[in-house]
Design a protein around this nucleic acid. Structure first.
Lengths: 318, 318
DNA sequence: CTGAAAGCGCTTACAG
DNA sequence: CTGAAAGCGCTTACAG
């Protein structure tokens, strides 16, 4: 069943059927009804492949995330798919698993697919590959989300520095001066920014920066678990943990070592609802993922039309 | 940059470029090299939209899941995308959120997109809509995963009944005769099959089926939480919980009521790694998600070629 | 081993 | 308000 069949059955030209399909103004009401009836009767679905080719448009966007098993990213995926669906846009998904080569493969796949654009939360170390991303961006609209690679590229992310400062202030307000910091993988912008925030807030409160209180991890549960054991050896009782997975690793260690829940006061950026089952008192943000996905789709649209005024959209948290 | 440009620059016809692009046999080595050089130089990516239209093929598959925030399904998505990527197939994703109308919208979107086929874990109650699915299946290859709707439709899922029987036997082996059962949403096949298994295993061990020990939930965390409180009123100490989310709800209640961890012996179908942080002693399966996704893609291929011998592929667990 | 030409199923100026 | 015809960027018999 193709547009020509509908045309024949309705006794009109394919042009007219196309107009009806696209809700074009210039169709007599009577004709429109006649055509729509045939479409209904035949249960006809227009071929978007053909439409996209001839109109040089595309209604699918490519989304690439580094780790969909991490609930932080599965929430992003969920929101993106849902918000895209509302606009009748499809989402093709790539999971890079933090591997640059796999990420590259998905990007190429999506370029060949001539998707409307690519929205990407890059793998670690991607900020070393600016040339690659410049090249890609010249072939297809690209919007970076969650993780920045460079201020020249269109990016939508959450405001990290002030948000993290506020989180750490909550610890200070409770009287803590010795605050441990669990850093994420510093080849990822969010990890760097959160560490920067730690340094700034200490300065703000005239607390001396102590290198021994900074523990370098990699955003994984494993590293949170390992570093927890290091922290147990110190006498700190307040901690900022740089992401949800490291928090889980930390909590796991807490449990294994039969530590009391309130032995540590913890702040983190975001954590899964699941954590409420373990410890109620962790300070974190409720992250507006839906806003992130909407704004990234908006920016993608602007980039497509080469009308993006600003490249960096930062979403404030509270 | 299109195939004609490459042809011109290489001094050959578009036919030849197309042959090179598709690794066709009949091209002189010299020509192939010449063409490939131009492709490299121009950083040319063939337009798959056009290829798909003219060859009447498609290299993307549509995947629809009911709830991607549930780690059970995000694991399926992750494995599907990864395994598809290895075959250079794209995956467009739909998240139905257990809503039949949304599911329908994604299906129609994917049909219009003329995807290679649809792999779907249906929403609850979908088994009431056989006519709809028959209709769809006549337009596009469809493979059902995880949840069955009817034995006439191509389906890949995990073996539920014997697997659940074995899980419950583990409780019986430890001397338990009074075993509570937390049922999932019975409009979903997996919930029905697990309940059936419960009945069968009781019969097998000559344990009287006691309606009061069956608690009807809906697969949600919330319902696990609520039913836990009911269970606390009874004197059972062994429980089968029908899925991962209900387990979490149960554990949450356990914690809130300051129950001892070993007060209940629990079996379940699958649970997130996260549960190890809460309770080490829960009996469950390690689910081979990768196998599910591979077999569903294989079956989709067979269905496409109308050469599927059997409609139901059940994956045994151990 | 190579190429001219028709065709995939749509859209879109253009003409009326 | 409607339609004939060209075009989107490929593939694929067919002929040589």
């Amino acid at each position: 069943m193709k547009i020509g069949d509908i045309a024949r059955l309705a006794g009109v030209s394919t042009t007219t059927v196309s107009r009806v399909l696209n809700n074009s103004k210039n169709v007599k009401e009577e004709t429109r009804i006649k055509v729509n009836n045939v479409i209904k009767e035949q249960n006809y679905y227009p071929n978007m492949i053909a439409r996209n080719l001839s109109s040089n448009k595309n209604d699918t966007i490519g989304l690439i995330v580094p780790d969909i098993k991490n609930t932080y990213f599965s929430k992003i995926v969920n929101n993106m798919v849902t918000n895209a669906g509302k606009k009748n846009l499809n989402v093709v998904l790539g999971c890079s698993n933090e591997d640059f080569e796999i990420q590259k493969k998905y990007i190429e796949l999506f370029i060949k697919q001539r998707v409307k654009g690519i929205i990407i939360a890059v793998t670690k170390n991607s900020y070393n590959e600016l040339e690659f991303f410049e090249n890609i961006s010249s072939k297809i609209p690209v919007v970076f989300i969650e993780r920045k690679i460079n201020s020249n590229f269109p990016t939508v992310c959450f405001e990290n520095i002030n948000s993290t400062i506020k989180s750490i202030e909550k610890l200070i307000e409770k009287g803590h001066k010795k605050i441990a910091f669990l850093a994420g993988d510093l080849s990822i912008s969010t990890a760097r920014e959160r560490l920067e925030a730690y340094k700034r807030v200490l300065k703000k409160y005239n607390i001396k920066y102590d290198e021994k209180l900074v523990f370098y991890g990699d955003f994984s549960m494993e590293s949170g678990y390992i570093l927890a054991k290091e922290i147990f050896k110190t006498n700190v009782s307040a901690i900022y943990i740089s992401n949800n997975l490291m928090l889980l690793g930390f909590l796991k260690a807490l449990k294994e070592y039969k530590k009391n829940e309130d032995e540590y006061l913890i702040s983190t950026f975001e954590h899964d609802e699941i954590v409420y089952f373990i410890n109620q008192d962790i300070n974190s943000y409720k992250i507006p993922f839906s806003e992130l996905t909407k704004k990234s789709m908006d920016l993608l649209e602007e980039v497509s039309n080469k009308e993006n005024k600003k490249n960096l959209v930062e979403i404030e948290l509270d």
